[in-house]
Computed example of a mutant assay.
Amino acid sequence: MTSQLTRALRIGIVLVGAVLAAVVGWILFYSVPDTLADLLGILLVIVTIIIGVRLAGRVAGSIYPEYDVAEVAVEGPISRDGDGPPIPGRGGGTPSDDIVEQIHAATDDSNAEALILKLNTPGGEVLPSDDIRRAAMEFDGPTVAYATDVCASGGYWIASGCDELWAHDTSVVGSIGVIGSSVNAAGLAERLGITYERFAAGKYKDAGNVLKEPSSDEREYLQGLIDDYYDHFVERVADGREMDPQAIRETEARVYLGVDAYDLGLVDHLGTRDDVEARVAELLGRDEVQVREFTPHRRLAARLRGSAQYLTYAFGAGLSSSLENTDGLRFRF
């Protein structure tokens, strides 16, 4: 059924509902308005018409929906609360739980036969990123990830759980890597006369404490954690993208323009948003599709930020995680 015919049928149902509501309201409440009660009756007729139109609109939307594809946007740094790691000059992103909620809403919506994930993110925390990826994988239908400006690190992690990944020629894609960091203030503490006394149970409990120089054993231990996280990242991407893990490792956590990412097999197709919709229509076996964006409530700052703020972060960040302990050690995937 074409979108024009669907729209006409919806309008027809709404008009019929309005007429029926007007008739019912007139019969129930209206007479010659020569008293206050009669005037109140006219107002009740109007209220009944409004209610009838709304009910008819819901019925029409249920019988002849305006959309058959859901779109959910993942924009900005990915974190549980939408704030992201403390990068100066960069706004927050959308809380990951809100994104997951919208994907689940699309999954439960019988009208949404396919899912488009619009990705414009430099990455973010591990578990929130994986929650979004898992939610997309649970969608019962074609899932197409679409990279706009930036799809790096945690964004690429999410995309690896979709059936296809599209990007512009000049999208920034990649950053499949891990970084860990810890401030080392041992020298400064010594100059200031600050000493560190250890009270801990467990050999590595205070590994990465900012007030002490890490031993070679502790460095090896922390690097082992980074290597384990990286292996996990590569494994997930290799499974989702059906790629050779070695080919992923050879990217060395670099970011690429979309055209180069396509040549490396990191992206399935290059194209515009119209091309993405045409591809979804092809996957559903129809001539065209109607897309509805499932949008969570966002703070004003999140809506106003620009994706250019995140470009520098995308070049240096991996799929970041706030696995930060009281000793000041931070790992970022």
Rank of each mutant, 00 (worst) to 15 (best):
T35Q: 07
L36D: 11
I42T: 09
A21F: 00
G52D: 05
R10D: 06
L40M: 15
T48H: 04
G84W: 02
I63A: 06
D83E: 14
W26I: 09
I49H: 06
V23D: 01
D83S: 11
G25M: 00
E71S: 12
I27L: 07
V59N: 05
T48Y: 08
T35P: 01
E66N: 11
I49Y: 03
V69P: 03
L28A: 11
I13P: 01
P86L: 15
A60G: 06
L43S: 11
R10A: 02
G41L: 10
V72Y: 03
E66L: 10
A37P: 00
S31G: 13
V19Y: 06
V53Y: 05
I51S: 10
I78L: 09
I51A: 15
V72N: 01
V24H: 12
V47H: 07
V23H: 06
E66M: 10
G25V: 04
A73R: 14
L43M: 15
V47Y: 06
V45K: 01
L36N: 10
L44M: 13
V24M: 13
S62M: 13
I78V: 07
P65I: 01
I11F: 12
A8F: 14
I42S: 11
D81H: 04
P33V: 07
A56W: 03
G84M: 01
G25A: 05
D83P: 00
G17Q: 03
A18K: 08
A22G: 05
I11L: 12
V23G: 03
A37G: 09
L9V: 09
